[in-house]
Design a protein around this nucleic acid. Structure first.
Length: 484
RNA sequence: GCCCGGGUGGCCGAGCGGUUAGGCGGCGGGCUGCAGACCCGCUCUACAGGGGUUCAAAUCCCCUCCCGGGCUCCA
């Protein structure tokens, strides 16, 4: 079997084959660092993170580049760079704003357990490369200059529209009046002339200005990955115009097709059924979400839907994800403590169940990274393990270990439970020692049958988010992160 | 207006021509001092509506309705 991926280019499932055996060259469009990252970013980057982790689990080496857009992303309505706009909003220098939100983004990605890219190139550090590429496009007749601004000439690229399915003439419908000096309404800026006093600008053969938005991704992906890439990803909203334009300028520049073998796009995230936007007041940052739910809950929520499907963020959905991740953790905890006191014996049933689950997991992921299906393989393993533990009085260490290892292995192949460490509970410092004393006293009360007081301790602790459970292998403590 | 996606049982969410998805919830039972966790069983006559193709359709075709998105900044 092999991996099959849904390629936006052609809109069909294709067998995944890399340019170089064993190596995946991958580029995902990063954020424009103008503000704090939101759940939409989380959705896209976590989804791609699971894909990357699975590819690595599958045996590929993945060379991953994700850019930082810190210049050139212009609003078509106000014709203003979003970085400049944000800088004015906060009363700081543009590059001050960029630093602030770029590092904030890095923090968020780390907090979500997203594997760091091999390179995170910044647009502003590649201006010279962009100028070189634009020069070549002009030489080859694919671009023209109008008063200090350079446009890509779409009419010289017959393939224009192959990704999004749009025809250049369909782009004639505009809500915003295009520059009348453009030859074709679909033509897009490679370089833009800067007005006097503009903060983000660089010298160029066409005068002072700044790059268009799309050119950065062509330049940076080709610089670090070569003229052809295996995977290029991003959110669905980038298909047109961003990725369409990237294809046009890249293939016109190199003369090689395809620029990208597989285009992958993630679906949207809505909040309680509505599109997330600042104007609707339902904008949720990654930092805010992490205050309420832990990273594994958020990741499980995202992976519970296929990466191309739309997902809706709601407290109910996150609560369900939290329950599910706790179910997996609970089984691991239980397995771990039983392993310590179990005897010899073969794997038995466990061996076959683990093999089955692993097979189902891999097949699900091979099928366009079907994470919901892959998760169900993990759940069935959890159920089998729990069943094994509750249905008999003696356990084989081998069987327990097989379950334990497989559950953790498959979870981590999706990036789940990266920080998981078995153990009853861990509370740092004095609070932890006080909790120990409290639980010891409670245990003694229970032994003496003074349940009224032992139960009161339990319910009081529950009120502050410490869940105490009495299991066959001892007292178990869980913590409830989310506020109710 | 044009172009993409979608509409699956109480909820979330796979499946995309014939075999149980899975999870959550609910009900019953087991375990437990109780609770929780966990296990077992059950539950829900599922596939937006209407036509058609087929031996067979949630899955393919046509029409209609509804939702989201792109053509404008967005992951």
């Amino acid at each position: 079997m092999a991996i099959r991926v849904f390629n936006t280019l052609g809109r069909r499932l294709e067998e995944f084959r890399t340019l170089e055996p064993g190596l995946v060259k991958m580029y995902v469009c990063g954020p424009t660092v103008q503000d704090v990252a939101h759940l939409g970013h989380a959705r896209t980057y976590v989804a791609f993170d699971a894909i990357i982790r699975f590819l690595e689990y599958y045996g590929y080496k993945v060379y991953y580049v994700r850019n930082i857009t810190d210049v050139g992303h212009i609003r078509e309505d106000t014709l203003e760079d979003r970085i400049v706009e944000g800088a004015r909003r906060e009363g700081v220098q543009p590059m001050e704003l960029v630093d602030k939100y770029m590092f904030s983004f890095f923090q968020d990605m780390d907090a979500l357990g997203v594997r760091r890219p091999n390179i995170q190139p910044r647009a502003s550090m590649h201006i010279l490369d962009m100028i070189e590429m634009i020069k070549v496009l002009l030489e080859k007749g694919h671009a023209y200059v109008v008063d200090g601004t350079v446009y890509f000439d779409v009419s010289t690229f017959p393939d224009y529209g192959k990704l999004s399915g749009i025809k250049p003439e369909e782009l004639e419908k505009h809500r915003i009046e295009p520059d009348p000096r453009k030859r074709n309404p679909a033509d897009f800026a490679l370089w833009k002339k800067a007005e006097k006093g503009y903060l983000l600008k660089w010298p160029s053969p066409w005068g002072e200005g700044f790059p268009g938005w799309h050119i950065e991704c062509s330049v940076m992906s080709m610089k670090y990955l070569g003229e052809q890439l295996d995977i290029h990803g991003g959110g669905q909203e980038l298909i047109l115009p961003h990725h369409e334009n990237e294809i046009a300028q890249s293939e016109a520049y190199t003369g090689r097709k395809p620029f990208v073998r597989y285009w992958l796009h993630t679906g949207y995230l809505t909040i309680n059924g509505e599109k997330m936007s600042k104007s609707l007041g339902n904008f949720i940052s990654i930092k805010d979400a992490l205050k309420k739910y832990d990273a594994d809950s958020i990741r499980l929520f995202i992976l519970s839907a296929h990466y191309r499907s739309p997902i809706d963020y709601s407290d109910e959905a996150l609560l369900q994800a939290t329950q599910n991740i706790e179910r997996i953790r609970g089984a691991l905890d239980e397995l771990y403590s039983l392993i310590q006191e179990s005897g010899d014996g073969g794997g038995g049933e466990a061996e076959r169940e683990v093999m089955d689950a692993r097979k189902r997991f891999v097949e699900a992921m091979e099928n366009d990274f079907n994470t919901p299906e892959a998760l169900s393989a993990i759940y069935s393993l959890v159920r089998s393990a729990n069943n094994y533990m509750t249905s008999r009085s003696r356990h084989s260490r081998d069987a327990l270990k097989m379950y334990y290892d497989a559950i953790l292995e498959l979870s981590r192949a999706l990036g789940l439970l990266q920080d998981y460490a078995p153990g009853r509970y861990r509370v740092e410092g004095e609070a932890g020692r006080i909790l120990d004393i409290l639980l010891e006293v409670r245990g003694e009360l229970r032994r003496r049958g003074i349940y009224e007081i032992s139960d009161r301790i339990r319910s009081k602790l529950a009120e502050i988010g410490i869940i105490v459970e009495d299991t066959r292998t001892g007292v178990k403590v869980r913590f409830r992160r989310h506020s109710r």
